[in-house]
Amino acid sequence: MKFALELSDGFGPSSGEKNIAELIKKELSSISIDLKRDELGSLIVFKEGKNIKNHGIILSAHMDEVGFIISKINDDGTLSFRKLGGIDNRLLPAKRVIIGENRIKGTIMSPPIHLSKKSEMAIDTEQLTIFIGAKDKKQALEKVEIGDLATFDQIAFEKQDTLWGKAFDDRIGCYILTQILKMDWDINITGIFSVQEEVGVRGIQSALEYASGEFGFAIEGTTAYDIERDFPEESPSTFIGKGPAITVVDRMSIGTNSLKKIVEGVAKGNNIPYQFKKTVSGGTETFYLLNQKNIPAICISVPVRYIHAPLGFCKKEDIINTIKLVKGTAKLLEFQMKKLYGGK
């Protein structure tokens, strides 16, 4: 799973996903596929079926991560910024960031507690600035420019049965897609590595113009905050270590019930642990698979503790089981399509 860590370390705030696309292209360079990057930057990978050339499935995962965009360069050499995607303001002070194509190291400034009133209140992003070692605007302009993008600065690592990193939402989905694409398929597999999901599920919309298939799957790294209580019987969303999470309904869409049943059947038949995501919050690309392509679609996710944060982790077994479940479901659909469309 080294590649999952490499993907998390990649630089890909919404609208600046080029580095991630390059990592994915490199990972897939040994297999026979057609690649396309659309105008927005999404990477569409088409792997033709060995047997059936006109039918297949679409899998999507988004390449972008939550991050920042530099909005102003101040006279004191610090940078003002805005958030790209949903980040809790309370996570920002004193965190390290990486900015722009030159990967400039920055630190979000945080006033000392000794001189702060109301230290129990979160500081508004508007008031925070990033220090990059520049003492004035001129020096700052030698390193960065307005519009530069930034991410949290956090190296991924492996620890016992867990993987840790800054961007498993949704690099873990990207990782799973690459693994699925590397397998042998008799039907067409279209992998969409989309952009700008975190700023309103934008990339998938244009990317779907270049994809076709009969079933759609959005693969995500999703919210697990299964720690609130001393005993883990309660989770507001998903549990880590309990298998892939199937989203029945999210903020934007309802997973296709017939497909949900198929996925569930595959999990049961293969002894793959699975769970249903409990929250309805958050939108996924499922909506566009359903509405734009009019195909049955559902979202399957790896539970990640602490997404949209500087550092999160997930269980390796959940990744493995998600791959198993997606593969098993796709194989079942492959079998059906072969029966229907008369392959060997």
């Binding site: 809790d88 905050y225 929250t279």
Partner: peptide
Amino acid sequence: VTGVIATIPPHLSSPDERKKVPK
């Protein structure tokens, strides 16, 4: 042993909750 201070994802918290920093 490395670890991280847990953060509730913004999908699961309310705007009011995000204003106040816990002890």
